[in-house]
Deep mutational scan, measured.
Amino acid sequence: SFNTVDEWLEAIKMGQYKESFANAGFTSFDVVSQMMMEDILRVGVTLAGHQKKILNSIQVMRAQMN
């Protein structure tokens, strides 16, 4: 498990989005775990492969939080 959203993004090789997530207010796992595709688009993730990777990881995160 990760301590910060930045660490999580690095771990899934999506570190290039750290600033975008932070600027959009997605700075805690409570918020990130609620993200939908529209949120991912809003933070500027436009590549389908990256969207899928982030969404898949969020689903895993949700499962671990319950």
Rank of each mutant, 00 (worst) to 15 (best):
F2H: 09
M14N: 01
F21A: 00
E19T: 13
E10F: 06
L55C: 09
T4N: 11
V32Y: 01
N23H: 11
L9G: 00
K18F: 05
I58F: 02
K13Q: 14
Y17V: 02
D30L: 12
R42D: 06
W8G: 00
W8M: 02
F29V: 07
G49R: 12
K18S: 11
H50M: 04
V45E: 01
K52P: 01
S1I: 13
R62T: 08
G15T: 06
M37E: 10
D39S: 04
I12N: 04
D6E: 11
F29N: 02
M35H: 01
V5S: 02
G15V: 05
T27Q: 07
V60S: 09
F21K: 00
L9F: 03
A22C: 07
H50T: 02
S33T: 12
M61Q: 05
Q16A: 09
S57Q: 09
V32I: 12
I54R: 00
M35V: 03
Q64W: 06
F2S: 07
Q64C: 13
N56A: 14
G25K: 05
M37F: 11
V31A: 14
M36A: 11
M65N: 07
A63R: 11
N66R: 12
M61L: 14
I58R: 00
L47E: 15
I58S: 01
G15E: 09
M61V: 10
G25C: 05
L55V: 05
E19H: 11
M14H: 02
G49S: 15
Q34T: 11
I54D: 00
L47S: 14
S1E: 11
Q51G: 05
E19R: 10
G15Y: 06
N56T: 12
M35Y: 00
F29H: 03
Y17W: 04
D30A: 14
A22M: 12
K18W: 08
M14L: 10
K18I: 10
E38C: 08
L55D: 03
W8Q: 01
I12V: 04
A48W: 07
T46P: 04
M37N: 05
S20D: 12
G44H: 03
M14K: 01
G25V: 02
F21G: 00
M35N: 00
S33V: 15
E10S: 07
G49T: 15
H50N: 04
V45G: 01
A63L: 11
Q51I: 15
L41Y: 08
F26M: 07
S33K: 10
I54C: 02
F2K: 06
G15I: 05
Q59F: 10
T46E: 08
Q59G: 10
K13I: 06
Q51M: 10
A22I: 09
N66S: 11
V31K: 15
L55I: 08
T27C: 07
M37C: 09
Q64N: 13
L9V: 02
L41M: 11
V60K: 14
G25A: 04
N23L: 13
M65H: 07
S20T: 09
S20F: 06
S33F: 13
W8I: 00
E38L: 06
L47Y: 09
V31G: 08
D30I: 11
E7W: 04
M36Y: 09
A63C: 15
N23E: 11
Q64G: 10
A11L: 08
N56Y: 12
E7S: 09
S57P: 01
K52H: 11
E10C: 07
A63V: 10
Q51K: 05
Q34E: 12
Q34N: 12
Q34Y: 07
V5K: 02
A48E: 15
D39A: 03
S28W: 04
T27K: 09
A11F: 13
G25E: 04
M61A: 05
M14C: 07
L55G: 03
Q16Y: 06
Y17R: 02
A22T: 08
G49E: 15
A11V: 08
K53Y: 13
V43I: 13
Q51H: 04
V45M: 02
A63K: 13
S1G: 13
T27D: 10
N23M: 12
T27S: 08
M35F: 04
D6G: 13
V43Y: 02
A63H: 14
K13C: 14
L9N: 00
G25P: 01
F29A: 03
W8V: 00
N66V: 13
V60N: 09
D30Q: 12
M35P: 00
V45C: 04
I54N: 00
H50S: 03
S57D: 09
T4L: 06
V43W: 02
N23T: 12
E19K: 12
V32S: 01
F21M: 04
K18Q: 06
R62Q: 10
M37Y: 12
V31C: 09
M14D: 00
M36E: 15
V45D: 01
N3H: 10
Q34F: 06
V31P: 03
V5T: 04
D6H: 07
D30W: 11
R62A: 12
M36T: 15
A48P: 15
Y17M: 01
F26A: 05
A48M: 08
K53T: 15
L41S: 06
V43S: 05
V43N: 01
V5G: 00
M61I: 15
L55Y: 14
D6A: 11
K18G: 05
H50C: 03
A11C: 11
E19V: 10
Q64L: 11
N56K: 12
T4W: 08
S1F: 14
V32D: 01
H50I: 03
S33P: 04
G49Y: 11
K18N: 04
A63G: 13
S28I: 04
L47T: 13
N66I: 14
I12C: 04
L47P: 07
G25Q: 05
S1R: 09
Q64P: 04
S57W: 13
E19P: 07
H50A: 04
S28Y: 04
T4H: 06
Q34P: 03
M36P: 03
F21C: 02
S20A: 15
T4P: 06
E10P: 01
T46D: 07
N56G: 10
G49C: 13
F2N: 05
L55F: 15
A11R: 08
F2R: 06
K18D: 02
A24V: 04
E10D: 14
S1Q: 14
S20E: 08
K18C: 07
E38S: 12
K53I: 15
T4V: 06
F29D: 01
F29W: 08
F2E: 06
Y17T: 02
M65L: 12
Q16N: 08
N66Q: 13
Y17D: 01
A63M: 10
S28P: 01
E38Y: 08
G44C: 03
A22G: 06
M61R: 04
V43R: 01
M36N: 14
V31N: 08
F29Y: 04
V5Q: 00
L55R: 04
K52W: 09
V32F: 02
Q16P: 05
Q34L: 11
R62K: 15
Q16S: 06
I54M: 06
W8T: 00
N66M: 05
L41H: 08
W8E: 00
A48V: 12
V5R: 01
T46Y: 09
Q59W: 08
D39N: 03
N23A: 13
N3R: 13
M37S: 07
K13D: 15
M37T: 07
Q51W: 05
N3C: 11
F2P: 08
L47K: 12
N23Y: 08
E19D: 12
D6F: 10
I40A: 02
Q59K: 15
F26N: 02
T27W: 06
F21N: 01
S57A: 15
L9A: 01
V45R: 01
W8D: 00
F26I: 13
M36S: 14
I58G: 01
G25I: 02
W8F: 04
I12S: 03
V60H: 14
H50E: 06
E10V: 08
H50G: 02
D30C: 13
N66C: 12
A22L: 10
N3K: 13
G25S: 04
M14G: 02
A22F: 13
G15F: 05
A11H: 15
A24Y: 10
L41N: 06
K13V: 07
E7H: 07
I40T: 02
K52E: 13
A22W: 09
V45H: 00
A11M: 09
F2Y: 14
M14Q: 03
D6M: 08
V45W: 01
G25N: 05
V5M: 03
A11Q: 10
M37D: 06
M61T: 04
M14W: 01
S20G: 14
I12W: 02
M35E: 01
F21W: 03
T27E: 05
S57K: 05
F26T: 02
A24R: 05
M61Y: 05
M61P: 02
A22S: 11
I40M: 11
W8K: 00
N3E: 14
G44M: 02
N3I: 09
S33E: 06
D30N: 09
E7T: 07
F26L: 08
M37I: 11
K53P: 03
S20L: 11
K18L: 05
S33D: 04
M14Y: 03
K53D: 10
K13A: 15
M61E: 04
M35L: 11
M35I: 05
S1W: 14
T46M: 11
S28F: 04
R42F: 09
F21P: 01
G49D: 15
A24L: 09
E19C: 07
N66H: 12
T4Q: 05
L47G: 07
V5W: 02
G25M: 04
